[in-house]
Deep mutational scan, measured.
Amino acid sequence: TGEEYIAVGDSTAQQVGDLTFKKGEILLVIEKKPDGWWIAKDAKGNEGLVPRTYLEPYS
């Protein structure tokens, strides 16, 4: 379980453990880390770190 967020920009994984996503994708945020990198899952079930500045709450 988690909260749904929509990507407001494209982000390409810079290192192992990062999640690549495109603008408009809905991501499920699993954990919000205080350093600004959140753990999220995409629609295909891929999981990784995403920069919170690229996400907005999805409603």
Rank of each mutant, 00 (worst) to 15 (best):
A43V: 09
K44C: 13
K22T: 08
G36S: 04
T1W: 12
K41D: 01
Q15A: 12
Y54D: 08
G45P: 00
Q15N: 14
V50N: 01
A13H: 10
Q14P: 08
E25F: 04
V16F: 13
K32D: 02
I6D: 01
E47Y: 13
G17L: 05
A43K: 11
K23C: 10
K22A: 07
T53R: 12
D10Y: 04
A13K: 08
P51W: 14
Y58F: 12
E47H: 09
P57W: 05
G24D: 05
W38L: 04
T20F: 08
A7G: 03
G48T: 02
K32S: 03
K22D: 04
V8F: 04
V16G: 10
S11L: 15
G9V: 15
G2Q: 09
E3G: 07
E47K: 11
S59M: 13
Q14N: 12
G24W: 05
Y58N: 07
A40D: 00
D10E: 07
D10P: 06
E25I: 02
G9Q: 15
V8Q: 06
G24R: 02
L19H: 02
R52A: 15
E3C: 14
Q14S: 13
Q15L: 09
W38P: 01
G24I: 02
P51F: 15
T53I: 13
T1S: 13
S11T: 07
I39Y: 12
E25Y: 04
R52Y: 13
T20R: 09
I6V: 10
I6K: 06
L27G: 00
K33Y: 10
P57N: 05
E25V: 04
I39G: 02
E31Y: 11
Y54N: 09
G45E: 03
A7L: 04
Y54S: 14
I6S: 03
N46M: 07
G2R: 09
G9M: 15
G36E: 05
T1C: 14
E47I: 15
G17T: 07
A43E: 09
F21L: 04
E3F: 08
P34L: 10
K41E: 04
I39F: 10
D42V: 02
K33H: 11
V8S: 06
G2V: 10
G36N: 05
G36V: 02
P51Q: 14
G24A: 03
L49Q: 09
Y5N: 01
S11A: 10
L28T: 10
K22W: 06
L19C: 03
L27F: 05
V29H: 00
Q14C: 14
I6M: 08
A13F: 09
W37D: 06
S59D: 14
K23N: 05
Y5P: 01
Y5D: 00
K32P: 03
K32R: 07
L28Q: 07
W37A: 07
K33Q: 09
K22F: 09
P57F: 07
I26G: 01
E56T: 07
A7Y: 09
P57G: 04
A7D: 00
K23F: 05
K41L: 11
P57L: 08
D35M: 03
E25C: 06
V16W: 10
T53W: 15
I6N: 02
P51A: 11
L27Q: 01
Y5T: 01
E25M: 07
L27Y: 03
E31F: 11
V8L: 12
T20L: 08
Y58Q: 07
T20E: 11
G24C: 07
E3Q: 11
K44Q: 12
E47M: 14
V50L: 04
S11K: 14
L19S: 01
W38R: 00
A43L: 10
Y58I: 12
E31H: 11
L49D: 03
T53A: 14
T12G: 09
D35L: 03
Y5F: 09
K44M: 12
I6R: 09
T53K: 13
E31N: 09
F21P: 01
L28P: 00
P34T: 11
G45Y: 02
Q15V: 10
Y54A: 14
I30Y: 06
G17W: 06
A7F: 09
G9F: 15
E3I: 09
L49S: 08
E25R: 00
D18V: 14
I26R: 06
L55M: 05
Y58C: 10
